[in-house]
Design a protein around this nucleic acid. Structure first.
Lengths: 167, 167
DNA sequence: AAAACTAACTTGCATTATGATAGTCACATC
DNA sequence: GATGTGACTATCATAATGCAAGTTAGTTTT
């Protein structure tokens, strides 16, 4: 895809993790993997592709390449704060995938570390605690929105919008 | 990427929306777009690519191709329940993007539709209302997990894991 | 001290996907 | 009859991905 100059936070996310490997690499990094060959074994990815993806994740500020041994020279890839916070998106994917594509039962769940009770992840407003469902909450242009973004997200959508209104 | 047979809900999500356009198409569909040329104009995507992506989203159960006019024959792409629920992942991306890549200010925000107050989206457990942060919550293998998944997610990670434990 | 091993990559080349442009087809409207 | 619209398909150049093999800098084994 051509490089885009966009304000949309979704498009910006896609620029960073919008290929087929980056999300899986970050999933593994969030799980605790840090080394080149760990990722390679876990993902079955070709080494040249892994190199490219790791470099791009470093460039976009998701990972950091850190030398952890001088003799021999060895490197590991550590999550940056932004990369660590990508956990929220991964967990949203886990929850969504479990809701719709786990016909033979759940193979991955989120549980309370102490009690072991299964958690059911939903998005809420941190202040009010209310779930971010439609039509109670809307997506609108923010203070720094460009004219294009304003035009798009401050007017009513062309047809019934799910981001704005329940169908 | 080669077709994978995996249980991981993250990988399953990536199979469906792991290319550079699908997430943006779904973003637009969630906004309310349904027609071929609406997507084309909005995204600036080549028509042959759009055809392929729409077909793949229909195949994977995210969209439905529905004829809304017989004379002339006209079609639109409607979100399935799974596609509509993908809103949760998109909102997680919006929140994450806003937290880390909106240095010049927010261009897209989620607000209370009535009061207009800005919402701050976080993931919580729907039952207890507690935020799904580490180390209070862990990701573990579920009842339908394969041996590979069990081995991976029921044992302690190789190094400190963010999915499991705070760094 | 040579041989094998490990981690982290490159290089070369075939295959596949993407992207730009142009063209098609069934209608509808002027 | 000419032009317009919606939803594409076809062709071909460019770019990305994938596989296999090779490289480099060291460490460990025999």
């Amino acid at each position: 895809m051509a490089k885009r100059v966009t304000q949309c936070p979704v498009a910006r996310s896609v620029e960073r993790v919008g290929d087929e490997w980056s999300v899986l690499i970050l999933r593994d990094a969030l799980y605790g993997l840090t080394r080149f060959d760990e990722f390679q074994k876990s993902l079955g990815i070709a080494p040249n592709i892994l190199t490219r993806r790791l470099n791009s994740l470093v460039e976009t500020g998701m990972l950091e390449r850190v030398q952890y041994s001088e003799h021999p020279p060895r490197f590991e890839y550590r999550l940056t704060p932004a990369g660590r916070d990508f956990r929220t998106v991964v967990l949203a994917m886990v929850a969504w995938g479990n809701r719709h594509f786990a016909h033979e039962g759940l193979s991955m769940i989120i549980v309370d570390a102490k009690t072991g009770e299964v958690a059911d992840p939903i998005l809420v407003d941190s202040k009010s605690g209310r779930p971010l469902t439609t039509p109670e909450f809307r997506v609108v242009a923010g203070p720094a929105a460009s004219d294009v973004m304003k035009k798009r997200y401050d007017t009513l959508p062309p047809t019934t919008s799910i981001l704005e209104t329940a169908k």
